[in-house]
Design a protein around this nucleic acid. Sequence first.
DNA 1: GTGAAAGCGCTAACAC
DNA 2: GTGTTAGCGCTTTCAC
Lengths: 346, 346
Amino acid sequence: MPERTVKSSGAPTLEAVAARAGVSRATVSRVVNNSPKVTDEVVALVNAAIDELGYVPNRVARSLASRRTQAIAVIVPETASKVFDDPFFASIVQGVALHLADTEYTLSLLMETETSSSKTRRYLRGGNVDGALIVSHHVSDLSYTQLGASIPMVFAGRPLIAEEGEGYYVDVDNVEGARLATQHLIDLGHRRIATIAGRTDMPGGHDRLAGWRRAMADAGLDDSLVVNGDFSPASGAECMRRLIALDEPVDAVFAANDQMAVGAYSALRTAGLRVPDDVSVVGFDNDRYAATASPPLTTVNQSPEEMGMAMAETLVRLIDGDETVPHASMMPLELVVRESTAPRTS
Amino acid sequence: MPERTVKSSGAPTLEAVAARAGVSRATVSRVVNNSPKVTDEVVALVNAAIDELGYVPNRVARSLASRRTQAIAVIVPETASKVFDDPFFASIVQGVALHLADTEYTLSLLMETETSSSKTRRYLRGGNVDGALIVSHHVSDLSYTQLGASIPMVFAGRPLIAEEGEGYYVDVDNVEGARLATQHLIDLGHRRIATIAGRTDMPGGHDRLAGWRRAMADAGLDDSLVVNGDFSPASGAECMRRLIALDEPVDAVFAANDQMAVGAYSALRTAGLRVPDDVSVVGFDNDRYAATASPPLTTVNQSPEEMGMAMAETLVRLIDGDETVPHASMMPLELVVRESTAPRTS
DNA sequence: GTGAAAGCGCTAACAC
DNA sequence: GTGTTAGCGCTTTCAC
């Protein structure tokens, strides 16, 4: 008969519960995982023992045995210091956490710094998580897409490299959103409508420019008034200055995000121009700045929080082996009209 | 001789590496954990095998065997939807992630919702993490403090219940910061100085009010001009309205955080009063709103990001068994003078 | 329905 | 220095 050393240290184990309840470890395990095939009385017995002992299952052991970690990674491959400067990221993460709170999954937040990229990859391959969420404004990194084969992952925004029906992502219809915004300006009677474009090497920047172009073309207007920014407030101001310097003034401006729109505000103010009296301005994102700007900014709302929730939901379904998950999920988009736009006066 | 079923599925294991290198599993383990007592040639041999096989250690198995998870939890026990509305939280989380990026630790983000509190506690006790960071503006929950005995934890801000020399926390000297801010107003010649206090049932709110009181008392000024807000912009506006309604107008206002200061701005604007011409305003936190408000807000800078880094550092040292870790770490605080304060004119 | 036994992939004594 | 041998705490066939 093999000796069994009595364990005195640490938290109560499944074995202790089994002994207390007078059943086998397997049965306790079944109860903990609510297996249907256990007698009600045994269930009661085991649960009593669990309560008395204050037993809490050890997830690490469970993971090792079941080969599931019940954890997902959220990877933010931006330069670390910029991540939370943009409310967009924070809101996505919040949405993810919110959805996960209703599940048994746990969230691991990985911030990818310049030097940690291989560390991140090892982490994903080291069996630490059941899946990953990639959040970025930038062109999605190819290296992640490759990992997609070995571990389920969902991207925020269409990865540029994704072939049709390949990879999973949640996105907004940026083209349509930009078209909506521009059409609003057109409906107000504006004709010389410029756009402060974002980085067009990012899907969002690219598509928003395309949306503006489409609206302008559909209305038979000149679509040459394009200045290129990089999504930062500073670039928005700089672009606006270039627009102001034009011989013929513009009636209205569509900025590819709110931060650039706010940057444009300051350039306009400096030039002595008023919003919306002299120039109407529309942004995109409806971020934290939009509502509190003065005047409050008309913009396109894209609810990054809902996007985060949708991403988490998609990933969890993927992990659970759901075959019906759509590769692309489009989030609703809507124009929020505030005080930065007004009918053409002149 | 026991049968050994050949494994074909999944990632390469330590055992596969051992076979490839012609050594035992223990030796591979030693190499992976850079144990000093392994011959250089064996190290080279093993590393070669690791590279060839693309071996990545399974952290779950490692955790189970070593009883360390190499993960820490960040718990944000705020109402979920409020968490990231306050840049303070986001910045702390960022600081934590930043520090952890240089270590082998991983970050688990737990957002505590009304219904998830027991889930969180189970998580902490289920051997999921080596330690926890509790981030909150609120009075720290007693129940966490109790857990502190079984798992290392560090609080953001002094837990109200902490006895001297009990528990670990990183904090700013709120009393001193508020005193600095108020003294600045006094130095500018203001005499009727009000304070829009935060929730005084939170350590921060309590101490900032105390700091204002001290500065006023030291200068022999009337310290009865107190209105109580709740740290939200709306409450800041409401408080300011009450101040404006006073018979004798105030010269200056010290708000217990920037969000309330910005709320005060709007109330002042609505009343036709100008900042700083009619009323000087000082905030606290130097959050995202402060620099971009108009006029830019004079405030007390407390760098939540550095606070997050300090928290992470403290926790890691605690986990590593460092006995010299101080129970309280105070972060530097400094007055940032912008355009919302000006010498008294009248 | 319940129990016995065999691992999950790794670390950690302990021998050699 | 390196190999052997036990587990870490749980899940999961497979008999009964």
